[in-house]
């Protein structure tokens, strides 16, 4: 299929320069690559800039209310597992007002493709700090800087026993497309954290890795089965080290040819290493201008198999139906204790 088949007739109204444009394009490309016909695809969103996304995709779409996209998407997918269901959400929609639905859709492992657009700000309400704004962040609702600790989305996903987590960057369309396709292929709740720039209220929030000159030094693209190598000259690698005193494992940068360089295993059920990878370079996301020593991980960090909720719940219904006598209302009432 062609990306153009997934473009709706609506004029795209993201601000000029907004990172959402790139993700929109990547979504259309990924959906074409996946090749599921438009009428079999439902895109559900809540409220926020990113939640406008369904309007620009020529599939079934539902732009709902703030924070509830996850619960509504759960209803769509569970009642109709044959559909491909995407959820578009932002750091406010998904992690603040919709936080409960977010952790529970992940816990249940509903087969959804969840795009979490993280620009670390409330854009549509014109610039308030969000649950992912670093501590000390100055915004209209935090004129003296925030004093609260932010979420790291990956940590929340793993804490909710997530089976798929990928991270991508708005300006890197090819990696974004790869992550979106992988999210669709994964059976279960797939979270793709899209780091997007808010050109109006939080410009440059991801410049640490978004700037071309810095990107290769400050980020690493993980690919399952490949060595963890990064740097402009592909000269650095990642290895794991156990602190001899505390036994805490930590990642370290070593020369690319060091035999300790790790090979990425996204399918490993144990999330320990996935967590270490996902938390790399997050210092800057926790506190304004904190130094980050390790590169930020992009690509598919975790992709493990587990039973999906929508499948399990439908299978249970089929199983019970197969073993029961009554399948219609009249047959059901016949089983009642009754008298004439």
């Amino acid at each position: 299929m062609e990306a153009s088949q997934f473009k709706s007739d609506q004029y795209v109204r993201f601000c000029p320069g907004c990172g959402d444009h790139a993700i929109c394009m990547a979504l259309q490309k990924a959906m074409a690559q996946i090749g599921i016909p438009t009428h079999q695809v439902a895109v559900i969103s809540g409220i926020g800039c990113s939640s406008r996304m369904p309007h620009y995709l020529n599939t079934y779409g539902f732009n709902t209310i703030h924070g509830r996209g996850g619960a509504i998407a759960t209803g769509v997918k569970t009642s109709h597992p044959e559909l491909t269901v995407w959820q578009m959400s932002g750091d406010g929609d998904c992690l603040a007002i919709g936080g409960n639905h977010f952790i529970h859709e992940i816990r249940r492992n509903v087969d959804l493709n969840i795009c979490l657009f993280n620009n670390r700000i409330y854009g549509l309400t014109k610039g308030q700090y969000s649950p992912t704004s670093p501590k000390g962040f100055v915004s209209k609702s935090s004129p003296f800087g925030t004093v609260e600790r932010p979420f790291i989305p990956a940590e929340l996903v793993l804490g909710a026993r997530g089976t798929f987590f990928a991270r991508t960057l708005d300006v890197d369309v090819p990696t974004t497309v790869d992550c979106l396709v992988a999210a669709q292929q994964h059976k279960g709740a797939s979270v793709v954290e899209c780091l997007v720039n808010c050109v109006i209220f939080n410009n440059g929030t991801h410049s640490w890795i978004a700037d071309r000159e810095q990107r290769e030094e400050h980020s690493i693209i993980l690919r399952h089965g490949e060595k963890m190598i990064f740097g402009k000259n592909k000269d650095k690698g990642l290895a794991v080290e156990i602190d001899p005193q505390t036994f805490v494992p930590r990642l370290i940068v070593v020369p690319a040819d060091d035999e300790r360089v790790l090979v990425h295993d996204a399918h490993q059920q144990d999330p320990t290493l996935h967590r270490l990878l996902a938390l790399m370079g997050q210092e800057r996301n926790l506190e304004v201008n904190a130094p980050s020593l390790l590169p930020i991980a992009l690509g598919v960090i975790r992709d493990v198999e587990a039973e999906t909720y929508d499948q399990a719940v439908n299978e249970q219904i089929q199983k019970v139906r197969a073993s029961s006598q009554a399948h219609t209302f009249d047959e059901l009432t016949a089983t009642l204790d009754q008298w004439s």
Binding site: I44, F62, T64, R68, A71, I72, A73, T74, G75, V76, K77, T78, S79, H80, N100, H101, H104, V313, N314, I317, V320, R321, S324, A326, H327, T328, F329, L332
Partner: peptide
């Protein structure tokens, strides 16, 4: 046995929202 899909949601809001999705 009647093919009913009944979901115990994470909260009241999710109860109605899953229904709206369906």
């Amino acid at each position: 046995d009647m093919n009913v899909m009944a979901i115990q949601a994470e909260d009241e809001i999710a109860g109605v929202c899953t229904a709206i999705g369906a």
